[in-house]
Design a binder for these strands. Sequence first.
DNA 1: GTACCCATGTAAAGAGTTACATGATTTC
DNA 2: GAAATCATGTAACTCTTTACATGGGTAC
Lengths: 177, 177
Amino acid sequence: MNTLSYILLCMLVRKPCSGYELKQYLTLFWESHHSQIYTALGKLHEQGYVTVENDATHKQKKIYHLTETGKAIVAEWLVEENKAPSQRDEFLAKVYVIALMDHQQATELLQDRLQHYRKMVKKYEQKTEEYDAITDTIEKERNLGRYLILERRLIMCTAEVEWCVWAQSTIDQLNTN
Amino acid sequence: MNTLSYILLCMLVRKPCSGYELKQYLTLFWESHHSQIYTALGKLHEQGYVTVENDATHKQKKIYHLTETGKAIVAEWLVEENKAPSQRDEFLAKVYVIALMDHQQATELLQDRLQHYRKMVKKYEQKTEEYDAITDTIEKERNLGRYLILERRLIMCTAEVEWCVWAQSTIDQLNTN
DNA sequence: GTACCCATGTAAAGAGTTACATGATTTC
DNA sequence: GAAATCATGTAACTCTTTACATGGGTAC
């Protein structure tokens, strides 16, 4: 059992999902490719942690349900100590050598990033609004975890935007002096 | 040439470094293990992008210097489009199912995270102060990139702290209602 | 009917992690 | 002189990415 498998089981706690759907939700906090998800789901099925249901309307679609054994190992995993989050961001390696770029190149680097994260902020603002619009208490509680993560994403993207603006003003000042 | 190799070359632009030293700097934005760094440096040497100097005082230590060819391929890489940052954070998978935890377990999860990031904030505050203390203009410019990255780290860790506090208050409210 | 998204899968190649292994230097 | 930290390296294993492959459903 690798981390991805535990995460998939976690997500099935909220509701039964297809692999495709899991992929969408996952991108909020865990990079992965469909090839990895489908093979992981296959193994989880073999191991009896999930059951598979063929969707009625979509022939190709498979809906995965968590079994009792699955629930049990998720519960065990939840209390284990967390591995430190891992991040890899090649943009920052470029920032590392920003002092050697000309002002225009440095600006381009920062402005591309800024624009990207501004879009992200808008996207996540919309998504959190969707949650706010939910009136049903049970549905709202079911989505609590997703909402907390979404809100965190929004906060982080906002922080990225603020950093970009600050970094740009910092290099601008050095340029004029 | 993989991304890590380009990043190592980037870092050598600032100043010649040993593999051990590169590892320290790298953790700011790119997770890696020494095994990976030493093998990558070996290949970069074979390819003529770096030269190796044996440190005078430390027999085991090897200092890597960027060659002209090395500089040239870094310059090419700098203008290439950036791959999206990748992040993997299993803590967030646990938050995803927070609605199913009892209040105490959820609190423990969030408070552990909060404490961890409070420590990080302190650590990075100290490091940015070290930069602020630099008076030499040339030295200050040489460290500009590192400073920008450090400041970003600080902003991000502060945002994590704020999110933890907010998330805790959110689940507290649900608990009392 | 065609373009786009939904939906799943396998195989090969590439990258990252863990374990094994060693030894020098500094600090107390 | 013992412990902690500095310092480097190889090998096996695991995980991730990319490429190959296919086909259904929906909107225009």
